[in-house]
């Protein structure tokens, strides 16, 4: 039933119109190592990506794969070492850093709010900075507050809010300028069921309004349930992309979990083996329990969360 609704929405809203484009993005970091050594690390190594209007695209990848760096570059928080990000608004293609930011709502675990301001003050300030008329801002605040049921704490200082309330205030922050594109970096990480369900519902609702969502996650089931398209990255490169169905037929595997671990294993090459790369060990375990033949406690907990939903 729900699947059918979703299909309809996609047909209605997805005009195959490209919204945000990443063109051969590269980001090189200099990493301090022990003693006098420094090494260059390509956190993102030549990634090109296009997200269309009314589409939810999920970025999957183990820790250190370059998800956060990619999303930071796409939301213009970070300058790419090479390559370019652009946004299409109408017929216009925008590449200017400041202009692009106008059309993006970016949310990550590091985007904290001003604790000494109230949510209302914060939203008013943001509205003015985005250049929205005062009256429109007030209307939008009222609307957002109603949708996210924030009326009770709209005028409280943010530092006094609970975790769930703060998360809602964070979403409100991304909403105030009604952006075309949402870029969320692990928005459900460490949240309880109710809070993460609220975020997932929010993303679905925005897609229905024709908005574009690009987000990263560790949770396979969540991605499978939500995403129109999935981009898997590993060591800063795209190792596979497509709709969940395409990925299934491409790899012959049924669950996203198996597809993912299989892809990572083949990308790393057989000689490294499953636990060859210490950095990835935990992620592979949590991402690909089937291949690993077991499940860490943490993974079990995450899975349970989705079963309940």
């Amino acid at each position: 039933m729900e699947e059918n609704d979703r299909m309809e929405v996609i047909i209605l809203m997805k005009g195959n119109h490209n919204m945000i484009m990443a063109d051969h993005l590269v980001k090189t970091f200099i990493k301090n190592e022990k003693k006098n050594r420094k090494s260059e690390i390509k956190a993102v190594d030549d990634i090109s990506l296009t997200v269309r209007e009314g589409e939810i695209v999920g970025i999957l990848g183990p820790n250190g794969a370059g998800k956060t760096t990619l999303l930071r570059m796409m939301s213009k928080l970070m300058r790419p070492t090479d390559g370019q990000v652009s946004i299409r608004i109408g017929a216009e293609e925008i590449t200017d850093e400041i202009e692009i930011k106008r059309y993006i709502g970016y949310l990550s675990n590091n985007t904290k709010l001003y604790g000494r301001l109230s949510t209302r003050e914060l939203l008013q300030m943001l509205g003015t900075i985005y250049g929205i008329r005062e009256k429109t801002v007030e209307e939008r605040i009222a609307q957002i507050s109603q949708v996210l049921s924030m009326d009770a704490f709209l005028d409280n200082r943010i530092e006094k809010l609970s975790t769930g309330q703060t998360q809602r205030a964070s979403i409100a922050r991304c909403l105030v300028h009604d952006p075309q594109v949402y870029i969320f970096d692990e928005p459900t990480l460490g949240l309880d069921i109710i809070s993460s369900a609220a975020i997932i519902d929010f993303m679905k609702r925005e897609r229905e309004r024709g908005k574009t969502v690009l987000y990263s996650t560790h949770y396979m089931e969540e991605a499978e349930y939500l995403c129109d398209r999935i981009v898997m990255i590993h060591h800063g490169r795209i190792i596979s992309e497509g709709t969940p169905g395409e990925l299934r037929s491409k790899t012959g595997q049924n669950s996203l979990r198996d597809i993912f671990s299989g892809l990572i294993l083949s990308a790393d090459g057989s000689k490294e083996g499953l636990f060859g790369n210490g950095e990835l060990q935990d992620d592979i375990v949590s991402a690909g329990s089937g291949a690993a033949g077991g499940m860490s406690r943490q993974t079990a907990k995450r899975e349970g969360m989705y079963d309940e939903r």
Partner: peptide, 14 residues
């Protein structure tokens, strides 16, 4: 330190 700098950098501000 409070982590709000990353938030403000998402805004169209130079």
């Amino acid at each position: 330190e409070r982590g709000t700098l990353e938030t403000i950098l998402t805004l169209p501000v130079t």
